[in-house]
Measured scan of single mutants.
Amino acid sequence: ENVVSAPMPGKVLRVLVRVGDRVRVGQGLLVLEAMKMENEIPSPRDGVVKRILVKEGEIVDTGQPLIELG
Rank of each mutant, 00 (worst) to 15 (best):
V19E: 02
V48D: 12
L29P: 00
L29N: 02
R18G: 11
D61S: 05
V54M: 07
R22V: 13
R24T: 12
I52Y: 10
G26P: 13
V3M: 08
E40K: 05
I41S: 11
P65K: 06
S5H: 08
R51C: 01
V60G: 01
V4W: 10
N2Q: 10
R22P: 13
N39C: 00
A6E: 02
V12A: 03
G28K: 06
L30S: 11
L13M: 15
E1D: 07
V48R: 04
E40A: 14
T62I: 10
E33V: 15
K55M: 13
R22I: 06
D46E: 13
I67P: 00
R18N: 12
G57E: 05
A34V: 07
L53T: 11
R45T: 02
V4I: 03
G70W: 05
V23W: 01
D46Y: 02
V49R: 00
G57T: 15
E1P: 05
E1R: 00
E33P: 02
D61A: 05
G26D: 13
P44G: 14
P65V: 07
K55G: 07
E38A: 15
L69E: 06
I59S: 12
G28F: 13
K36A: 03
P42S: 09
L30H: 04
D61N: 03
G70P: 15
N39I: 09
L30A: 02
S43A: 11
L16M: 02
N2K: 08
R22T: 11
D61F: 05
G10H: 04
A34C: 00
V12P: 00
P44V: 05
G10V: 10
S43K: 00
L13T: 04
E58I: 12
V19C: 01
G26T: 08
M37C: 01
V60D: 00
R24G: 05
S5W: 11
V4K: 03
V54P: 10
P9V: 15
M35G: 09
D21M: 02
V3N: 06
D46F: 03
R18P: 03
A34P: 06
P65L: 09
K11Y: 13
D61Q: 04
G28R: 04
A6F: 15
R24F: 10
E40T: 06
G26I: 08
G28V: 11
L66N: 03
R51E: 12
R18D: 02
D21S: 04
V25M: 09
M37A: 10
N39K: 13
G63I: 08
M8D: 06
K55R: 13
M37G: 04
P7M: 07
I52K: 05
P9A: 06
N39E: 02
Q64D: 03
K55T: 11
I41M: 14
P65W: 07
V3P: 07
P7G: 04
P44Y: 15
L30Q: 02
G26E: 14
G20M: 14
A34N: 06
G28P: 04
L13E: 07
L69S: 13
N2A: 09
R51F: 09
V15P: 15
V48Y: 06
E58H: 07
R51S: 09
S43Y: 02
D46H: 04
V60H: 03
V15I: 07
Q27W: 05
L69T: 03
G26H: 10
V15C: 01
D21Q: 02
E38T: 13
E56C: 01
L69G: 11
G63A: 03
E40P: 08
Q64F: 07
R14C: 01
V31I: 10
I52A: 04
R24S: 09
D21R: 01
K50T: 14
L29G: 01
G26R: 06
I67R: 00
P65I: 09
V31D: 12
G63P: 11
I59W: 10
P9R: 08
V49N: 07
G57Y: 13
R14W: 14
G70I: 06
L66K: 00
L32G: 02
N2W: 11
E58G: 02
P9E: 03
S43W: 15
E40S: 14
G47P: 00
R51V: 12
G47Q: 08
M35R: 10
I67N: 05
S5F: 11
